[in-house]
Computed example of a mutant assay.
Amino acid sequence: MRFLIIIPAHNEEENLSFTLDSLQQQSFRDFKTVVVNDGSTDRTAEVIKKYTDHDSRFETMDLQKSAHQPGSKVVNAFNNGLKTQNMDEFDVICKFDADIILPGNYLETLESAFKNNPEYGLVGGLLYVEQDGKWVYEGNSNKQHVRGPMKAYRKECFIQIGGLRETLGWDNIDSILLENMGWKEMVLPELQVKLIKVKGADYTIRPADYYGRYFYFLGLNRFLAYIASSKEAAKSRSVSFFFNIIKAYEACKTEKLELKISKEEQQAINDKRWKTLKKKWLNM
């Protein structure tokens, strides 16, 4: 199998070399990497050039800086990188971040998983962060979900779900849609991916606004959005947090902001959420 790896990068001069080094050190070598320089103002371009000048598996493209919004920015860069390639030449499409360190057997293990399990549509490892000099599981999501920094899709699955959506919530939309189409998402816990910096640290959007917009762009109906908001408010032990999330969600509905999913996809997402709700909360 041949891998196409797209890496969006904005001002990653301190981190990117760790990611690209870990790719060069992979035991599996049949891949092409496109680093999308998304309007960087630091030395990111110089870092990329060190690899493209000496390794034909690495390419780059330059973009003007994308709008700095959670979700849409990184997917916009990814999609622009994807347009430069002929997908017919590849079997696996990867979206990696520019601040991760992959174990040396990462791609080899993914290839084996895809080859031996034709139902696998999305495969990845687990994220680890450094704390007190040790790498520990990030714990920011359940261990059955492949996180955004290290997604690898079987090409047929990627095409079927319509690729990645330039919207907040893309990281969950893909998982729900592929499962609805009969594919499986698989996390391989033995693959420990090191995350160099904390995600979302450079976003200026307030947490309540983030969740309200996230639930809207995920396509949740009002009932499920309110349930999800109450869950987040309970974590924060703040009633005002609940109302602020709802305020942001309702503002999106009032403005009728464009969703990047169809009515049918929106229904599939709500059905999945409802099933999860019944299973976890209602024991049904």
Rank of each mutant, 00 (worst) to 15 (best):
M1A: 13
L4P: 10
A9L: 08
A9E: 06
N11P: 11
N15D: 10
N15H: 13
N15P: 03
L23T: 04
Q26M: 08
Q26P: 11
F28D: 06
R29V: 14
F31D: 03
F31S: 02
F31Y: 15
K32Q: 11
D38H: 04
G39N: 03
R43H: 08
A45W: 06
A45T: 12
E46N: 15
I48D: 07
K50E: 12
Y51N: 09
T52F: 07
H54E: 14
S56P: 13
R57Q: 07
M61D: 06
D62G: 07
K65L: 12
K65W: 01
H68G: 03
Q69D: 09
P70Y: 02
G71T: 03
V75W: 00
F78S: 02
G81M: 06
N86T: 15
D88N: 15
F90V: 11
F90D: 05
D91M: 05
V92F: 08
C94P: 05
C94G: 05
K95L: 14
L102C: 06
Y106F: 15
E108G: 04
S112M: 07
A113H: 09
P118R: 14
Y120M: 12
Y120R: 11
Y120N: 14
V123M: 08
G125L: 05
L126N: 04
V129R: 13
Q131P: 02
D132V: 07
K134S: 12
V136Q: 12
V136Y: 04
N140R: 13
N142I: 11
N142F: 09
K143G: 11
Q144G: 12
V146P: 05
R147W: 01
K151P: 04
R154H: 06
K155T: 08
E156S: 15
G163R: 01
G169E: 00
W170K: 00
N172H: 12
S175P: 03
L178S: 02
M181L: 14
G182M: 07
W183S: 08
M186F: 10
P189I: 08
Q192G: 04
V198A: 12
T204E: 13
R206M: 07
Y211V: 02
R213Q: 09
F215M: 09
F217P: 00
G219S: 11
L220E: 00
L224R: 15
Y226A: 14
A228Q: 10
S236L: 11
S238K: 08
F241T: 01
F242Q: 09
N244D: 15
N244Y: 10
K247S: 14
K247G: 10
A248S: 14
E250S: 08
C252W: 01
E258F: 00
E258N: 04
I261H: 00
S262R: 01
A268P: 00
I269V: 13
I269E: 01
I269R: 00
M284S: 09
